[in-house]
Amino acid sequence: MHRPHTILSCAVSLDGRIDDTGPERLRLSNDADFAEIDELRATCDAILVGAGTLRADDPRLLVRSPALRERRRAQGRTEHLLKAVVTRTGDVDPAARLFSTGDAGAVVYSSRAGAETARRRLADLPSPHPPAEAVDAGDPPTATAILADLAERGVRRLLVEGGGHIHTLFLTSGLVDELRVAVAPFFVGQQDAPRFVLPGSYPHDPAAPMCLLEARALGDVAVLRYRLGEEDPE
């Protein structure tokens, strides 16, 4: 299947949590790691999150560095990435910052009924705004359908940034090429804190482990990069 080179990136605590249960977003990384993630974003064509991340964090999903945005312009690309959201229900907030920022537009992937709901919700976007549309990606949405649609849009490199349901969807699909994990030097220790991944059938189990490409320190944060596919990451 022709599909984008897919990179999954996440920051976790030592006990595998991607946030705590408090009202504010837990900082699991440091400035050096944030800068590397910005550089990684700048090399990609699209960035994808789940509706849970959209509701909890209201992210903008932008390339932050002016120099990186200028580099993208010099390459004939948009300053920012195409933004993708996956939702079962299609109940997205048109006031979310993801839809009002950037210059490459957004796509909402949902079921057929969810896509209809999302289209009605996106009709309430304030004007002017970047283009946004909704796509039927199966019931429930599948990574295969999402990647096929992104490929048709010219996306060659996709960055997946969570949350746990989305990590699980893509990692169990076997369609992730590279995994980048930043590990914070502490435990969250809360039973109800969101996890990096959920239970599922993963292709990379003890009998078929991933290939560790890199392990290094960024201050107190450990950065691990794994190859999941057969080819080396670009």
Rank of each mutant, 00 (worst) to 15 (best):
M1F: 06
P4H: 12
I7E: 02
A11S: 12
S13Q: 03
D20T: 08
T21G: 04
E24I: 08
D31N: 11
F34I: 07
F34N: 11
A35T: 15
A35Q: 15
E36G: 03
A42F: 02
G52P: 02
A56I: 07
P59L: 12
R60Q: 13
L61W: 08
L61I: 11
V63N: 03
S65E: 09
E70N: 12
T78P: 00
K83E: 02
V85Q: 13
V86R: 03
T89I: 00
T89H: 02
G90Q: 06
G90T: 00
R97N: 07
D103M: 07
A104N: 02
G105W: 04
A106K: 02
S110E: 05
S111D: 04
A115F: 01
T117M: 09
R119W: 00
D124G: 12
P126S: 14
P130T: 01
A132I: 09
A134E: 01
P141W: 12
T144Y: 08
A145V: 06
L147I: 03
L150K: 04
R157T: 09
L159Q: 15
V160E: 11
E161A: 14
G162T: 08
G163R: 06
G164Q: 10
I166E: 09
H167Q: 08
L169Q: 13
L169R: 08
S173C: 09
L175Y: 08
V176D: 07
V176N: 10
D177I: 05
D177Y: 04
L179G: 05
V181P: 00
F187Y: 14
A193M: 07
P194K: 06
R195A: 13
S201G: 12
A208D: 15
M210G: 14
M210K: 11
L213R: 14
R216C: 12
L218Q: 09
D220C: 03
V221I: 15
R225L: 01
R227D: 00
L228C: 08
E230L: 08
